[in-house]
Structure formats: C-alpha cells, structure tokens
C-alpha cells in the first residue's frame, strides 16, 4: 500500500518535472499550434538557429554567464564555508544577531538592495564591469550558503578536525583532507544552488552590468516578456540544458576530487592485502 503510494507520488513528481521541459522543447520548434489541435501544425528552427548561428550573441553571452556564475560559486563558497563554520561551531558575542543579519538579503527585496548598492558601486568604479556583476551576484546567495554550511557544521562538529590535528595535520591540511571531504554533500548542494541563482539573475546583472556585461538572461528575458514563444522557448531550453550540464559538471568535479583524496590509498590497500 505504502509502496504503491510512493510509486505514484514518484511518477507524479517526475511527470511534473519532465512535462514542462517537454513543452518547452516542443514550443522551441513550433511555428504554429492552433488551439484545439494535439500536435503542432508547423515546425521550424528560427529560434534555435538564431541562438546557434556562428558569431551569435547568445553563445557569447552564454559563455559570459557561465564564467560569472562559476566565479560567483567559488567566491561564495570561499566566504560562506568559513562563515558557516564560525556560526555553526563557535560561540562568540553577537552570534545571534549575525545569524539574523546574514539572512537579511532573503527578506529585503533584491531590487532594493541592488538600487542601494548601485550608487556605491558607481563610486567604486565597479558598475559595467564583470567584477561588479560577480560581486552583486554574491549578495543574494550569501544567505543560502551560510544557512547550509551553518547547519552542516552544527551536524558534523569539529571532532574529525580535532582528530586530524592531533595526528599532525596543520590547519590547511586539516581543511583540505578532512573538512572539505566531510562537508562535500553540503558543498555540492550549496554550490548548485548558488550557481543556479547566479545563472538566472536578470535585474541585478542589468543594473550593475549596465548592458556592458551581457549574460544569457539579459537576452532571454525580453523575449519572454514580449511573448515570442519560439524565441523564449528556445532560449529557455538552452538555459535549462546548460544549467543542468553545469550542475552535473560541478558535482562530477567535486566527486572526482573527493575520491582522489581518499579512494586511491584505499584501492591500494585492498589490492595489497587481499
């Protein structure tokens, strides 16, 4: 009973994930699809051709987008892992206050934050630069990173790190060989989330990048708003596929690192001892 129920739920869940994707795929090649008909009347490749033609801006912007999101992901992880560790493991005055403050970007609208930071960034010469866009993208994702890593560190504690140190590992060695592999699941989930949020940023990118930094959503959103279904669907399709590939890539890379730092020694001892 419970089994079949969970199977039904699984099917519903997969359908709700796959069907919209299929619809986007259909619309990206559909020229005309009158209302009551089940299949599109006419198919075409205008949308996908526009994106993939040689020298297309879509491809350039796609590369820019990926580059920005990769940097945002790395930088945010570099900030939120130590931050989450401090909040998860150590006691210090004002901890409760800081815990609330770092979540503030979730509560305050990113538009308000963006407008406020815009002025400052102008003065600092960061507007219209990729660096500025990277920095502004970090703002809305900090709370997710901090939240995830605070929880992870509360969960795993610092016992294994203590053990590493007494066995002679320095702080950096401890971090690389023990802390990182231990929190790897958190890094993967936080990293994916950060990447996706950065990858889909529209308003903040435009505000700070000022159109000089052209990311994929900057080209995509006007089509979605103007209702050119074929263009919007084509862009969305490429967006989703690239985002998925990037996520798989992140996970694969991290897992590879993870196994390199632990598995090889293990394989060796298995061979030698059995």
């Amino acid at each position: 009973m419970e089994r079949s129920l969970s199977r039904i739920l699984l099917i519903i869940l997969s359908l709700s994930l796959i069907l919209p994707l299929l619809m986007i795929l259909m619309w990206s090649v559909t020229v005309s699809w009158p209302f009551p008909e089940i299949f599109p009347r006419e198919l075409g490749l205008r949308g996908l051709r526009t994106i993939f033609q040689p020298g297309s801006r879509a491809l350039d912007s796609l590369i820019t987008s990926i580059r920005i999101s990769v940097f945002v992901t790395i930088l945010t992880l570099a900030i939120t892992i130590p931050g989450g560790k401090a909040l998860g493991l150590y006691e210090f005055p004002g901890k409760g206050f800081i815990k609330i403050i770092v979540l503030a970007p979730l509560i305050v609208s990113p538009v308000a934050i963006g407008m406020g930071i815009h002025g400052t960034f102008i003065r600092l010469g960061l507007t219209n630069t990729e660096l500025g866009v990277i920095l502004i993208h970090i703002v809305p994702v900090i709370p997710y990173g901090i939240r995830i890593f605070t929880n992870i560190f509360e969960l795993v504690g610092d016992q294994l790190e203590e053990q590493g140190k007494v066995l002679g590992a320095g702080s950096f060695q401890t971090f690389m060989h023990i802390t990182l592999p231990t929190i790897m699941p958190g890094i993967i989930s936080a990293g994916s989330m950060i990447f996706i949020i950065s990858f889909s940023q529209y308003f903040l990118t435009f505000l700070i990048g000022g159109g000089s930094v052209q990311t994929f959503p900057l080209l995509m959103v006007p089509y979605i708003q103007s209702g050119d279904r074929m263009m919007a669907a084509s862009y969305s399709l490429v967006f989703i596929v690239v985002a998925l590939l990037a996520l798989l890539g992140i996970e694969k890379m991290l897992r590879l690192y993870y196994s390199k730092n632990s598995g090889i020694a293990g394989v060796f001892y298995t061979k030698n001892s059995d």
Partner: peptide, 22 residues
C-alpha cells in the same frame, strides 16, 4: 577518542596512513 573518529571518507589503510601523509 572514545568514539574512534575514523575518517569516514577514507579506507582503513588510508586512515592509518593519514599521519604519515601529513
């Protein structure tokens, strides 16, 4: 330690080897 604190992502051999690697 009482709770052993073996590194879960390393094999037994790699756990023992750890201090020497460091």
């Amino acid at each position: 330690f009482q709770d052993h604190r073996l590194f879960p992502h390393m094999t037994v051999g790699a756990n023992i080897e750890f201090g020497l690697r460091m």
